[in-house]
Design a protein around this nucleic acid. Sequence first.
DNA 1: CTGAAAGCGCTTACAG
DNA 2: CTGAAAGCGCTTACAG
Lengths: 354, 354
Amino acid sequence: MADAANPAEPPRKRKRVTIADIAERAGVTSGAVSLAVNGKPGVSDATRARILDVARELRWRPSHAAQTLMGKNSEAVGLVLARPAEVIGEEIFFSKFIAGVQSTLSGRGYSLLLQMAEDAAAEAAIHQAWILDGRVDGILVLDPRIDDPRIAALAGMDHPTIVVGGQVDRDSIRSVHVDNGGAMGLIMDHLHGLGHDRIAYVTGDQAFRHISERMDAFSQFCVDHGVWGQSLAGNFDPAQAREATARLAGAPRPPTAIVFDSEVMAIAGMSTLASLGLRVPADVSVLSWEDSTTCQVLHPTVTALSRDAVSLGRTAAAEILQLIAGQPVQQEPVVARVIHRESTAAPDRDRGPA
Amino acid sequence: MADAANPAEPPRKRKRVTIADIAERAGVTSGAVSLAVNGKPGVSDATRARILDVARELRWRPSHAAQTLMGKNSEAVGLVLARPAEVIGEEIFFSKFIAGVQSTLSGRGYSLLLQMAEDAAAEAAIHQAWILDGRVDGILVLDPRIDDPRIAALAGMDHPTIVVGGQVDRDSIRSVHVDNGGAMGLIMDHLHGLGHDRIAYVTGDQAFRHISERMDAFSQFCVDHGVWGQSLAGNFDPAQAREATARLAGAPRPPTAIVFDSEVMAIAGMSTLASLGLRVPADVSVLSWEDSTTCQVLHPTVTALSRDAVSLGRTAAAEILQLIAGQPVQQEPVVARVIHRESTAAPDRDRGPA
DNA sequence: CTGAAAGCGCTTACAG
DNA sequence: CTGAAAGCGCTTACAG
């Protein structure tokens, strides 16, 4: 088909076209071709124009491998996901984040090199290999843990690295500024402002830095505002969220509002409440830490913290690109806000049956 | 920290260790080192052992760039996504598929090279660049369209390619066998078996091959079984799905069951039905083409076609790996099944108020 | 401004 | 079995 459209096309089989081919055709040396195509001084304008013409005519493309061998950037950013495939498939955060990263990267001609690993140690090994191979110009690290081996390893390699999802106490490593504590403050302001003073928080995996930051802010707020607050340790598993919700609902003095650490957990929690005959928000308000279309279309619609994972990805990508370019990183803080929907309302303690 | 743990470690700055370093240390030529580390004949066992020891001691790793220059495989598979970041972030299919691909690839030491593109033409350009650069050993193409430019371009390059999401009429290109028609048959069997004979189908973008395959099977079934069937063209947009649902619900003789082409569309549709005061499944049954945790925890839970995007990704990855290895591709068909949940039930035409 | 050459790190014939 | 050399496709000093 392509051939039919352009019948004069030469039989393009095997044999890649190299700068040597261009040099021969243009009657110069390959060194001159290199200077010409790279826009470096050293060839006359006339020669340069001729060389460029031939290059275009021959449909030449630089050999990425050869350029990498010479130390050129690989134009790729690496990201390894150390979670089971099932979790990555369920949590909307990952696809949003990756989509955001991609949209910025692709605009600059960069690709994302993606790999999955069993655990943080395996992830660190992949990082090492990628860096030594020059396969990536920079690395994105997701969700730092307390005493994260990946951070320790990367800190020693001085390679562009951006950590996403929590602060890191190393000078050599930058992190996308996500203010988890501040976001939790917004959530608590929202609920407390509605009149809630018995609030529960069903958390994700507490080994993650970002989760512990949220928990700290949660406790802090409760202490400061005289709110009864209870965190229940979870692990992002919906079954576990359901169990925690049932336990909370069955308590002598149940909370009037529950904050869930992910969309999937929030939905699971709401479904549990419904099956227990509890109404949202009349009996208990629900808030999801992560927004999605599902939150918008559920019945009732779900109040959510919009971290906007897509723009978080965009920001992370922009920062790693700045780091790679050797520019100072302009940390644009990722804005989070509470999107107020139907699942949160003032508690109706004293009201009779609707 | 790493240094503290291993104080004898040499100052590992700059300068990568090459086979020349190994050769010098082991008292052989670099050619011998190459043979030794690659397990090729040409060196005595004693020499080989000595060389391997030195390589290990020096923590040598082959230069990926140099090997690629010599024509070695890149150990990466390419996938470009030609959809807006927002869509990719919302549709659970993508993250599941990518997670599945990854889990198989990572097990074999392969990475996924990912990029986003504006449209199919831009995607084809990225494919060309990747192939010419030797950056990927194989390419995965998602959701072929009618007269897809990507397929036309790839067909001419004889490079390992696997198409996912629809059949393709080219001998040189293999596709993961997803039986869209058969799956639609399962859905219709399910609904018809429950007693529905007025069924609507709100579709995704009809320019996609897999959607048109589903539509054909839908029409076919309706004709064969005397079912009143109506497809409404959509484009995966939840707002559009809501509108289509409202139109269907407001019809003089509304359907008793609606099939939606994606999870997001199904949820949007259900929310519309609820806001119109229609009960699911009492007034209308709803079925989603794509399963997810959300389908399991919604109220009512949603009957869904489980294509199992994760295993679809695994299968696609396994097939591209076989193609790369030059092995015959064993097409394991991807099994789809209808997971019956609360959102579908027998139509209650004649029944009075509950 | 241009030419000739060395080198990036590896692999692979080709002689000894 | 081993050594010496050419070559993959490019870049970059270094002479003219």
